[in-house]
Design a protein around this nucleic acid. Structure first.
Lengths: 298, 298
DNA sequence: CGCATGGATCAATTCTACTGATCCATGCGA
DNA sequence: TCGCATGGATCAGTAGAATTGATCCATGCG
């Protein structure tokens, strides 16, 4: 047995209520519609079944034998469906999947996520890191934190912070050349990942637009976090986002020789599908981000 | 857990098909709609749940974990509902409730119903008799056979036969006055149910409009069939519908002294609710009536 | 490389579902 | 017994949901 496409399921739903309450008016109230609408839906259903489901008596309706037989099974069917949907909602509320870059994950989320989990014990967090912008229509992701222009169709994005950068190195390395006091000093040292596009941008901002690092040996680390680790180890100068390394600066493991910050025009954004903005877990995470990130914008 | 009124049940139904077939296009075919419509419905459902159910991959869709969890339960729910409806249809197809008068039941249906039952072994027949026209909205009735004008709102009616009548009596009673050869002879005999409104109509048709039987003792039999039985027993003259008594005439238990038939303007009709015209049992009974009643009209 | 496949998008259209007003029959209380 | 309250039916009018057809797009496959 298979229900045809045309089958008036909504009418069936109305019938379930009417049969239970033995009243079109009260069924209408429960379903948030008028008595007229209930009358219409029930008639529609009867038409489809070719069989009356209620006897119309003045001031009351009573189920026909057919309706009597049908009602409990329909109620059961809807309850199965309602349970399934309820269950799914519970489940899906319970795990938040965050997509972001390895760098943001290690340098910021790792420090703050503990707070979110304390405040939301019911929500498990899964962190997925990759270099590319996640496609919400293809991957299992609830929210993402990415750099970009903040304009993605179908997605709601909140500005988090500027994505600016500046050279950083270990104090020991700086000492080997008697300290780094002007941009040109950098060129005396090994550049970690000389192929990083941030370098020419920063030198241009520093008034040296013609610096070409291409000649230098290029080793790609692939992620800022790894470059930073190499810099801490004194292996060279890295170009980093200082907000991510406040602790290394405080500990004196890295120094930031210049105040000058350059930017490639893209910023950090917190994004999620517009349509899911009101799910509990996304709402909770948004509030957490709002609190934890001083430069958060709606 | 209760489904809200706004819940898109039809979308859920579409989802069931799409999840099973893993294709919007094929789901559309199965449901008799276009792929576009499926896309719309699925999106609607996802919007409602605040959660994607399919990953959109080029050339195919696959269920998200949430969709994966949901699909089987939804399928089960719909199957419960479909079973219920299927079961009800079977049941309801299996009993035909006929409302009619005692007379029509005994004098015509009793003789023909056997044929119907032989031809439709799956359909049980229940016969309900009463004097009043059945109200299909209040009583458990599938079809009715009644006299009237053939115009009832919401009901389909088929003409069955004229409701004309003529005096009938037993040959023995006729012999007591040397035979009944002209209308006035009737008055020499006892009139069964002299209050029957058919008498003055018949006398009027016979050119004797002023006959008043009111003075005679009136005993109401309430149903033609009982009057006929009294007539067979020689208790008097009854005014009857000859079509109902062809066998009594053939057996010589009753005679019809005059060809003259009078009518009160109402005829016999076969009626049922317009909306149920295509249910199997009603269709079957209609065909039976068409065959069995030479004057049947659509 | 070019085509076939399956889904997304968009604008236009159809038609369902619903409402508000009104009517009707009846049960109930005064 | 009358009048009113209650609950459903009917009807016309309407907002907006559902659907379609045309078109676009990405990709897997020969």
């Amino acid at each position: 047995m298979k229900l045809s496409r045309q089958f008036p399921l909504n009418a069936l739903h109305v019938f379930e209520a009417a049969a239970r309450l033995k009243s079109f008016t009260r069924a209408g109230e429960e379903m948030g519609m008028t008595q007229t609408a209930v009358t219409y839906q029930i008639k529609l259903l009867e038409e489809h079944l070719g069989e009356p489901l209620f006897f119309r008596r003045p001031r009351q309706v009573t189920l026909t034998p057919a309706g009597e037989r049908l009602a409990p099974k329909i109620a059961e069917g809807f309850s199965v469906i309602a349970e399934a949907i309820g269950g799914m909602k519970d489940q899906s509320e319970s795990t938040l999947v965050i997509h972001t870059t390895a760098t943001f994950a290690t340098r910021w989320l790792a420090h703050h996520l503990g707070t979110f989990q304390l405040e939301n014990p019911g929500i498990a967090v899964r962190l997925e890191t990759s270099q590319d912008m996640v496609d919400f229509t293809r991957a299992e992701a609830d929210v993402a934190i990415r750099s970009g222009k903040g304009e993605w169709p179908g997605l709601k994005s909140h500005f988090l912070m500027k994505s600016h950068f500046t050279p950083m190195l270990s104090p020991a390395l700086a000492a080997t050349i008697g300290g780094v006091t002007e941009p040109a000093d950098i060129l005396k040292l090994r550049i970690i990942d000389a192929g990083d596009p941030w370098w020419p941008m920063w030198f241009a901002a520093a008034g040296m637009p013609d610096i070409d690092l291409k000649a230098r040996p290029i080793s790609r680390y692939g992620a800022q976090a790894f470059e930073a680790a190499a810099a801490v180890a004194g292996q060279g100068v890295a170009i980093l986002k200082p907000e991510f390394y406040t602790d290394e600066l405080a500990l004196g493991r890295l120094i930031q020789p210049f105040d000058l910050l350059a930017s490639d025009g893209s910023d950090y954004w917190f994004v999620y599908p517009q349509a899911r903005r009101n799910t509990r877990k996304i709402r909770a995470f948004r509030e957490f981000m709002r609190k934890s990130m001083p430069t958060f914008r709606d």
